[in-house]
């Protein structure tokens, strides 16, 4: 099976073996949250394996609107580490790890769930783990286990930390390739879709030279259904022209009786307040995160 051109994380379904390559933790948790949110909403069993620990993972997902604790409490979700699942005594064996997934599939069926979603943080493979050379076999085994099933697996690879050879060796075993839809990315600025909550994310520094991709991203945000968030929590600077573009889009969305949240640093929020956005019904100006 060969990975096709990128799809939206919200389009994943049964039998999909997706490779998520991410460049920063915001992107990872955003896409993972959307994958899990949609799985829980569809009544599926969800398993989330991560090296970050259950607490921080639940916190990151919760911040993006996923009700992790209630899902765990009703037995619909598991958040766990790799040991005893993908790893055994810090060693990796592809057949053991694939067996774990097969058992999860079986257990999920027995529990009466219509399907399974598993998100697998693959950063363990960056460690000096015995058996790492079996990684391609593992991905091949996952693909085989998913054939004809009602499960989907999202394998998460940090594209900045995994070497291109490793990424290329596993990519072919995935049926889908997932990354955030990106309107602009360079050393100074990144403008991309946000999936949980829906909207766009602007990170870095935005000045008039980013007018075109920003206009495109805002136009798409306008077309999304429901409430949206413009996440600027990692935006260190925005100039007057871009501020006006965001303000105009926010006003337009609010005029459609939809709620728009502008999440940004306090000094950026002060600029939007100066434009009067803090006094408009339907616009929420939320300050977040210190630099």
């Amino acid at each position: 099976m060969v990975a096709d051109a990128g799809v939206q994380v919200t389009e994943l379904g049964a039998e999909d073996h997706a490779c998520l390559t991410f460049g920063e933790s915001e992107e990872l948790f955003d896409l993972t949250a959307a994958f899990i949110r949609d799985g829980l909403a569809a009544g599926l069993k969800v398993v989330c394996l991560s090296g970050a620990g259950p607490g921080p993972v639940a916190g990151e997902l919760g911040r993006r609107g996923v009700g992790v604790q209630p899902a765990i409490a009703r037995g619909q979700m598991t958040v766990a580490g790799w040991e005893g699942r993908l790893l055994s005594g810090q060693a990796f064996r592809a057949d053991t790890a694939v067996s774990w997934l097969a058992e999860e599939l079986q257990s999920c069926r027995k529990q009466g769930f219509p399907g399974l979603r598993a998100s697998l943080d693959m950063s363990w493979a960056l460690r000096p783990v015995a058996g790492i050379e079996e990684l391609p076999q593992f991905e091949e085994g996952i693909a085989a286990a998913l054939a004809g099933s009602t499960a989907a697996v999202l394998c998460q690879y940090d594209r900045e930390r995994f070497d291109p050879v490793t990424l290329a060796s596993v990519a072919g075993f995935h049926s889908r390739s997932v990354a955030a839809a990106t309107y602009h990315a360079d050393a100074l600025l990144r403008v991309c879709r946000q999936y949980a909550p829906p909207g766009i994310r602007i990170a870095g520094e935005a000045d008039y030279q980013a007018e075109e991709p920003l206009a495109l991203a805002l136009a798409e945000a306008l077309r999304l259904d429901g409430d949206i968030e413009v996440n600027m929590s990692a935006l260190a600077f925005i100039d007057a022209r871009c501020s006006l573009m965001v303000a105009d889009a926010a006003r337009a969305i609010a005029s459609l009786s939809r709620l728009v949240t502008l999440r940004c640093l306090p000094e950026v929020a002060a600029g939007f307040a100066r434009l009067g956005l803090d006094a408009i019904t339907g616009i929420r100006l939320v300050t977040s995160g210190d630099r």
Binding site: D207, F237, D239, A240, P266, E267, V268, A270, G271
Partner: peptide, 14 residues
């Protein structure tokens, strides 16, 4: 302060 640094920078940029 932090906010004022931002304002000075923003004005200089504009």
């Amino acid at each position: 302060g932090r906010r004022e640094v931002y304002e000075v920078t923003a004005v200089a940029h504009e």
